[in-house]
Structure formats: C-alpha cells, structure tokens
C-alpha cells in the first residue's frame, strides 16, 4: 500500500495559478523550498502535480488552477517518485 503524506490547506493569493500555489506551499513549509523545484525554479523530474485526475505537471507556472481546486473541493496532489529510496 502506498502511504500518502498529510493533506494540508494553504491560502493562495490571487491569481490562483500553479506557480502561486507552490509558492504559497513553500512559504508555509520552507523546508520544501528547492525540493519540488530546483535551485533555478524548474520542477524536479521526479516530482509530478496531479489534479482532478489529470497530470498538470507540464502546465506553465502561470496556468490557472482548476476551479474545483480553487474552491477546495479537489486536492492538488504533489507526487514524489515511487521507486528507490
């Protein structure tokens, strides 16, 4: 069985973009800084973002989040690599 990490709720300033969401996550959890995105701000290859059953990892940071995520009805999933370790 795969263990999922805790679900957290963070306030995201407008506009509600993928980049602003990850920024907000890092503000509330500074130790995540540069672990999801590298030192230059690019998504690390072994990190994926899922929402509403679709892979949004390749969306630009400026992309607007799905409305159901903005409304808090659906989570945005941050998925780390599931091999190795």
């Amino acid at each position: 069985m795969i263990k999922a990490g805790p679900e957290v709720v963070v306030p995201v300033p407008s506009p509600h973009t993928l980049g602003n969401l990850i920024d907000a996550l890092e503000v509330h959890y500074p130790s995540l800084r540069h672990t999801l995105r590298d030192q230059e701000g690019n998504r690390r290859p072994y990190i994926r973002f899922y929402a509403c059953r679709i892979d949004i990892s390749f969306w630009s940071w400026e992309s607007g989040l799905p409305e159901s995520v903005v409304q808090g009805q659906e989570p945005l999933l941050v998925v780390g690599a599931v091999s190795g370790g």
């Binding site: 800084r33 540069h34 672990t35 999801l36 590298d38 072994y46 780390g80």
Partner: peptide
C-alpha cells in the same frame, strides 16, 4: 530526486530542524 535539505540540531543530534536550502 529532491535536491538539498540543510538540517541543524541544537541539542546534540536528538532533534533536528530544517533551515534553508
């Protein structure tokens, strides 16, 4: 996969906290 995390302990290694990466 996840890059660098800096940890520090102020109690001789019993407990740890992340700092900045």
């Amino acid at each position: 996969w996840f890059g660098q995390v800096i940890q520090r302990s102020w109690d001789g290694g019993k407990s740890w906290e992340t700092v900045d990466n």
